[in-house]
Amino acid sequence: MLLRTGSLYAQPQQSVLRPAGVQAANIAKLWDISLIVCGIVFALVLLATLVALLRNSRQASGAGQAAGPPDLSSLARPEHRTRALVIGASVLSVFVLVGLIVADVLTDRALSKLPVDDPVRIDMIGAQWWWQAAYRAQDGQGGFVTANELHVPVGRPIVVSLQATDVIHSFWVPNLHGKKDMLPGIDTTIEFRADQPGTYRGQCAEYCGAEHALMAMLVIADPPEHYAAWVARQTQSAVQTGDAITLHGRDVFERASCANCHTIRGTSAIGTTGPDLTHLMSRETMAAGVLANTPQNLAAWIRNPQALKPGATMPAVPLSDDDRAAVVRWLSTLQ
Rank of each mutant, 00 (worst) to 15 (best):
Q23H: 06
V159L: 13
M124W: 03
V317S: 11
D322W: 01
C258Y: 00
R81M: 10
D71G: 04
G21W: 04
K113W: 10
H279V: 00
I40F: 14
I40P: 00
D117W: 02
R77F: 06
R109K: 14
G99R: 13
H177Q: 11
A137W: 09
A60T: 07
R201Y: 11
L183W: 14
L150K: 12
I101L: 14
I87Y: 09
L3M: 07
E206V: 06
D108G: 08
K180V: 14
T199F: 02
C204E: 15
C258G: 01
S90N: 12
C208M: 03
R81F: 05
C38S: 14
A127M: 05
G142V: 12
V290H: 08
V94T: 14
A25C: 02
T273N: 10
V154Y: 12
G88Y: 08
R81A: 13
S57F: 06
V145A: 03
H212L: 02
T285P: 02
G39H: 09
S15H: 08
G242R: 06
K29P: 01
M1K: 05
G6Q: 00
L162N: 10
C38F: 05
L50W: 02
N260C: 04
Q163C: 00
P223S: 09
A76C: 03
T273A: 13
A325W: 05
S57P: 07
D323A: 06
A244D: 04
A28Q: 09
Q296C: 01
L111D: 04
S34K: 09
D222K: 08
A210P: 00
V91L: 14
T235W: 03
S237F: 06
W172A: 04
H212F: 06
I270Y: 09
L85T: 04
A210Q: 10
L331K: 06
R109N: 11
T82D: 11
P305D: 06
D32W: 00
A292V: 15
A103Y: 02
M314V: 10
L218T: 07
G274W: 03
Q65R: 14
D117N: 15
R201P: 02
A89L: 14
R324E: 11
A48S: 04
A287Y: 07
I40V: 15
G242H: 07
D222P: 02
T189W: 03
H151V: 14
P78I: 11
P275N: 15
A60F: 05
E254D: 05
T165N: 12
G209C: 05
R18F: 05
E211P: 00
G99C: 09
W129D: 13
L92H: 04
I125D: 07
A300I: 01
R329F: 01
A232M: 03
A10Q: 10
L46T: 13
W130M: 08
G185R: 03
L176K: 08
R265P: 01
